Amino acid sequence: IRVTEDENDEPIEIPSEDDGTVLLSTVTAQFPGACGLRYRNPVSQCMRGVRLVEGILHAPDAGWGNLVYVVN
Rank of each mutant, 00 (worst) to 15 (best):
I1M: 01
I1T: 00
I1P: 02
I1L: 05
R2F: 15
R2M: 08
R2I: 04
V3G: 00
V3H: 00
T4K: 11
T4D: 00
E5A: 14
E5D: 09
E5K: 06
E5H: 05
E5T: 09
D6C: 10
D6N: 14
N8D: 08
N8E: 10
N8S: 11
D9W: 11
D9C: 14
P11M: 03
I12M: 08
I12W: 03
I12G: 01
E13W: 15
E13Q: 12
I14L: 11
P15L: 10
P15R: 14
S16T: 12
S16R: 15
E17L: 10
E17M: 07
E17Q: 14
G20D: 05
G20F: 05
T21G: 05
T21M: 04
V22K: 00
L23G: 06
L23R: 13
L24S: 01
L24W: 07
L24E: 01
S25V: 06
S25G: 07
T26R: 15
T26L: 11
T26G: 06
V27G: 00
T28R: 14
A29Y: 05
A29V: 10
A29Q: 10
A29R: 15
A29L: 12
Q30M: 14
F31N: 00
F31E: 01
P32F: 02
P32V: 05
P32H: 05
P32R: 07
P32G: 05
G33L: 10
G33R: 11
A34P: 01
A34S: 04
C35E: 13
C35M: 15
C35K: 11
G36I: 02
G36F: 01
G36N: 01
L37T: 00
R38C: 10
R38I: 08
Y39G: 00
Y39I: 02
R40T: 09
V43H: 15
S44D: 15
S44P: 04
Q45Y: 14
C46F: 13
C46S: 10
M47N: 09
M47D: 04
M47K: 03
R48I: 15
R48C: 15
G49P: 14
G49A: 14
G49V: 13
G49L: 13
G49N: 15
V50N: 02
R51K: 13
R51A: 11
L52K: 07
V53K: 10
V53C: 12
V53S: 11
V53L: 08
V53G: 05
E54T: 07
I56T: 12
I56V: 13
I56S: 09
I56E: 05
L57F: 09
L57V: 00
L57C: 03
L57I: 02
L57Q: 00
H58G: 07
A59D: 01
A59H: 05
P60E: 03
A62N: 10
A62Q: 14
A62W: 09
G63T: 05
G63L: 02
G63K: 03
G63E: 05
W64L: 02
G65K: 06
G65L: 04
G65S: 08
G65N: 04
L67R: 12
L67N: 14
V68F: 04
V70G: 05
V70E: 07
N72T: 12
N72R: 12
N72S: 11
